[in-house]
Nucleic acid binder design. Structure first.
Length: 425
RNA sequence: GGAGGGAUGGCUGAGCGGUUGAAAGCACCGGUCUUGAAAACCGGCGUGGGUUUGUAGCCCACCCAGGGUUCGAAUCCCUGUCCCUCCGCCA
């Protein structure tokens, strides 16, 4: 959420900045609702003040044994007006809040203009696609012999679910273990095991709710008071660790990582990437989250991007770093880098990681703060990034490490995790 | 699923329905004292919102959450959430 005070006094400027994200802010509505809010709040607080002092006086008069009937009726009168006024205030505040929760974060000035992923800006490239002297296969045809079982996945759960068995299942596990070890041991993230089901408050904090409910899987359990949601990313539990808390400045930055499954309904992506395990309802990811001092969040963004890149470099997978353009930028992000890995089977670079700085946008929703230099609580900045998506990384490994015989060579760094297997064949 | 007990400021912990946003202790910050430190003493020390040019002042709200009773609720009533103990079930 943006700072309501800031929007109030800089509505036009905010609207201009949000146009970069192709979002049209209803300035008129917000201004008029807020001025209405102001007058109602003022009169409500005036009435509250009158009741407060009147009741205090009531107590004193009664203690002295004096007559209170007149005061009582005047207080009853105030209460009548107050009830109406308080309800009106509550309504308009809720209305304003509902609007503000739907307004996206402001894009950073360095974010390129653009409409969709075609306008993203390539920042750098690492490695080069290998020149092969044979026609590369894609992971679908390559993997099936070694345990990548799409048919059974569909039998068990339907479209966008895959069963992995045998060596492929092990390769998948090896990748996750390897990533988690790199992020914890080399990059200083604290390993976490998080709940995979969270309640709505957590999703509101990180910005998936209220706007993106349709992208989530939601439980409906007999006798359940409030539903649970399956996490769409470990960003949700990891970031919400600091929700409603004030941490010491000396505790920052907080670096957290977790390997979790992620669940997404993929509503609105019908027909996209239906083949293979590029786009699944359930996929694993090693997530990185940083909770930082506001002055360091952009440094942290570069650093985290490096942490994700390290994984691909160690796996020797060619990739590009792109800066998302305004139109492609997510709801909570002020700036995002995507890592796109080379997929020989598709002859193109595909997103494998996304690293975002959210400034205080999530922190404000979560009331996540630190104690600043003057002792006053200030909002932290939050960042999240994948380090990296496990399923897609496995697809990249399968396709990039294939040989002419359709075998898959195990990347050097994964060998310790594969029990000495050098080639999957 | 059944039976009880609980939730108060960073922590511990008081709080007959009425000058209680809340005692006290600890922690923390400033000061006095000291060569320095400790101790002792003095003072300060919650969060959110509003108003405002204002991190000044003033006002409002907040004692798990939401309702209710009352002129007035941390205190009484109802509902919910969470935590603890015991029984049952269970990986």
């Amino acid at each position: 959420m943006l700072d309501p005070k800031y929007i109030r006094s800089n509505a036009e400027e905010v609207a201009v900045q949000l146009r970069k994200k192709h979002y049209e802010l209803d300035v008129k509505r917000i201004i008029s609702l807020d001025s209405e809010r102001k007058s109602i709040q003022l009169s409500t607080e005036q009435l509250q003040s009158e009741r407060k002092s009147g009741s205090k006086q009531f107590g004193m008069l009664k203690a002295k044994g004096e007559d209170v009937s007149e005061l009582k009726s005047s207080l009853e009168n105030i209460n009548e007006k107050l009830n109406v006024s308080e309800q009106a205030l509550k309504d308009i505040q809720a209305e304003l809040e509902a609007i503000l929760l739907m307004v996206p974060n402001l894009p950073h000035e360095s974010v390129p203009e653009g409409k969709d992923e075609n306008d993203n800006l390539k920042i750098r490239q690492w490695g080069k696609p290998k020149v092969l002297d044979f026609e590369p296969q894609d992971h679908v045809s390559l993997g099936q012999a070694y345990g990548l079982d799409f048919e059974t996945g569909v039998k068990l759960s339907g479209a966008r679910f895959t069963l992995m068995r045998g060596q492929i299942a092990r390769l998948h596990r090896a990748l996750a273990q390897f990533m988690l070890d790199v992020q914890t041991v080399e990059h200083g993230y604290e390993e976490c095991y998080t709940p995979y089901l969270v309640h709505a408050d957590s999703l509101l904090g990180t910005g998936q709710l209220p706007k993106f409910e349709e992208d989530l899987f939601k439980t409906s359990c007999e006798g359940e008071a409030t539903p649970y949601y399956l996490i769409p990313t470990a960003e949700v539990p990891l970031t919400n660790i600091v929700r409603d808390s004030i941490v010491e400045a000396s505790a920052l930055p907080i670096r957290l990582t977790a390997h979790t499954p992620c669940f997404r309904s993929e509503a609105g992506s019908y027909g996209r990437d239906t083949k293979g395990m590029i786009r699944q309802h359930q996929f694993d990811k090693v997530e990185m989250v940083q909770i930082v001092h506001p002055s360091t969040s952009f440094d942290a963004l570069e650093e985290m991007t490096g942490h994700a890149e390290a994984i691909l470099q160690k796996l020797d997978l060619p990739y590009c770093v792109v800066a998302l353009c305004g139109g492609d930028l997510g709801f909570v992000a002020t700036k995002t880098y995507d890592l796109e890995v080379w997929m020989p089977g598709q002859q193109m670079y595909r997103e494998i990681s996304s690293i975002s700085n959210c400034l205080d946008f999530q922190a404000r929703r979560m009331q996540a703060r630190f104690r600043g230099a003057e002792g006053k609580p200030e909002l932290v900045h939050t960042l999240n990034g994948s380090g990296v998506a496990v399923g897609r990384a496995m697809v990249a490994v399968i396709e990039n490490y294939q040989d002419v015989k359709g075998r898959i060579h195990v990347p050097e760094v994964l060998k310790p995790y594969m029990g000495g297997i050098e080639i999957i064949q």
